[in-house]
Design a protein around this nucleic acid. Structure first.
Lengths: 337, 337
DNA sequence: GTGAAAGCGCTAACAC
DNA sequence: GTGTTAGCGCTTTCAC
């Protein structure tokens, strides 16, 4: 059986195609009686509108493109799933577009997808959402977009973010509450807004609890296992070594475990370690890593809602913008001995 | 400036729209002179065909849907990237559809996406590609599909696979070459075809090298960290414990490291551990885990090529079907002491 | 309130 | 070889 078209529905419902279209699009000016008839016919024929035809006529594609450049597979997948479920709910398709935020071809690659297919909107994840060229491109092409965890917020496009600074503040306070005073910190990649927020939360907590920040306890990592490893070595090879280290993500935290094992430093007895992101590795390692979990799925869900509102030129302020993170206490932290 | 249409191109090239269409579709019967003209006009206008219109007219969508149900984010992302790059190259879009192979709604969920949008073909990853109901559904709807790592191969649809059995055979031989004779094995989830192939490679290597398989050294895991942990405990709590353990994936291998740490068993000095998949954790843990890497990206790439051939009803036998895996020797293995 | 007709951008069928 | 015409399924005029 060939797929039913709007004509078939009109025939069965004994109305015109236009009336069917009106009902389907929730337009006013249709008598309830006819609405009923149409709905019945739609159901009887198991009719679904052809998105291609809809798009062609309406100059829209019902495609939302998710742009990401991020080395964390667990994070990306969660993002995809959250965005996807909301897209499906609203009758949109999600197109994925992995890219490299360091590539000189970034702009070109995004431009090319805007040409080869049509998309109603973009979702930019960090750090792409702070890329001025990219934003300029989308603005120029007049393509709506929404951002996840932007650092710079001046654009009028919708965005969502997690309260990284607050979570980092809480996590640092937690370490202090365990009796730690010598708390090391490994920063993330400076291109990522989250890096600065996480560091700021750490700073603020120390200050707030009357501790002074020791520059020797702060090292610059790049979110990779390798940089985490070298930072950990630097931190732990000092005379007065920290009794706790806060890494800006779980990969770097995992690297601390490696260095500690090699140096025969016992975790958590001699050194507490915390990470960030709740990456799979934080559970697949021993001791499992105390970390921070962002509500990524929910954030992705909301950002899609906002984007679709923006696409439809409706207000989007009704939705949440800042999302709370959750501290997940595992086995890599213990009271300072 | 509004996007150029085929009409604009025809106008500039001073030919009919049909001629433009012919050139664009590489159809015969156009004089080289006109081809030149059309190409020049296309370039001048930076013209790209509207995929919606193309799809509507041609009863195709240029959408390929990737179906997966797999708990390994690194694997999925790699798969997506491989499939995506090939899709883009051939002018297709990739739609992703994560699902749960255990869900009773699986079939319904796939059926619904075939209704809400049109797709030219599906890519089924394992274990979905061995789901009879699913295959029956696609066959009935006459939607072409291709499979990645199917266990049952009777269908005439194209597929690719890695030679898991061979890789597992080689890995086991490698352990034996290190002097190990008491080699434990943790099986994966029985729903996955790979589980059986990996086990078979292990069996065959033992046999081949003149060792007898000891049932006490084989435990049934489910690919999760937790099951790996309990299997490791069972294996290591025996009187005559194995000196090496082969886990069917890296999550379970990571769990062995945990158990070993708790039991003060030194890795790799007292126990060699190998995993499978080259999951991110295998590098983010210490000691890093010796493992097997499948050429996922390449497999995904090829399966898309095959699928598109199938969609176009062209032969697809020219492409590779079986892909070699690579042993990655890291720090979790050493000669038997 | 409702319907007929036009057309979104493209390609298949058929003329020439 | 090349151009004209029709129409994919839908929504948007614009009549009634």
């Amino acid at each position: 059986m060939a797929k039913a078209t709007i004509k078939d529905v009109a025939l069965v419902a004994e109305v015109s195609v236009k009336t069917v279209s009106r009902v389907l699009n929730d337009e006013p000016n249709v008598r309830p009686v006819l609405q009923e008839k149409v709905h019945a016919a739609v159901k009887a024929l198991d009719f679904k509108r052809n998105p291609l035809a809809r798009g062609l006529r309406g100059q829209q594609s019902f495609i939302i493109t998710l742009l990401y450049s991020n080395p964390n597979p667990g994070y990306i997948l969660e993002l995809q799933n959250g965005a996807l479920s909301q897209c499906i709910e609203q009758g949109y398709n999600l197109q994925i577009h992995p890219c490299d935020h360091n590539s000189p071809d970034l702009i070109k690659s995004v431009e090319s997808i805007t040409q080869y297919s049509t998309q109603d909107g973009f979702i930019l994840t960090h750090p792409l959402c702070d890329n001025k060229e990219l934003i300029a491109l989308l603005d120029e092409k007049n393509i709506p977009f929404a951002r996840i965890s932007p650092f710079v917020r001046e654009h009028d496009s919708p965005y969502v973010m997690s309260n990284d600074e607050e979570a980092s503040f809480e996590m640092t306070k937690y370490l202090i509450s365990l009796g730690h005073t010598k708390i090391g910190f490994i920063k993330g990649h400076p291109d990522f807004g989250a890096t600065h927020k996480r560091y700021k939360g750490y700073q603020r907590a120390l200050e707030n609890m009357g501790l002074t920040l020791d520059e020797d306890y702060v090292k610059q990592g790049m979110f990779t296992f390798e940089t985490g490893e070298s930072c950990a070595r630097q931190l732990l090879n000092q005379e007065s070594r920290p009794t706790a280290i806060f890494a800006s993500n779980d990969y770097m935290a995992a690297a601390i475990l490696k260095v500690a094992a090699q140096m025969k430093i016992n975790i958590p007895a001699d050194l507490s370690v915390v990470g960030y992101d709740d990456a799979p590795v934080s559970q697949q390692i021993w001791p499992s890593i105390t970390t921070v979990k962002q509500p990524i799925n929910q954030m992705a869900n909301t950002v899609v809602k906002k984007l679709i509102k923006r696409i439809k030129k409706q207000p989007f302020e009704e939705f949440d913008t800042v999302f709370d993170c959750e501290l997940i206490i595992r086995n890599s932290t213990s009271p300072c001995s």
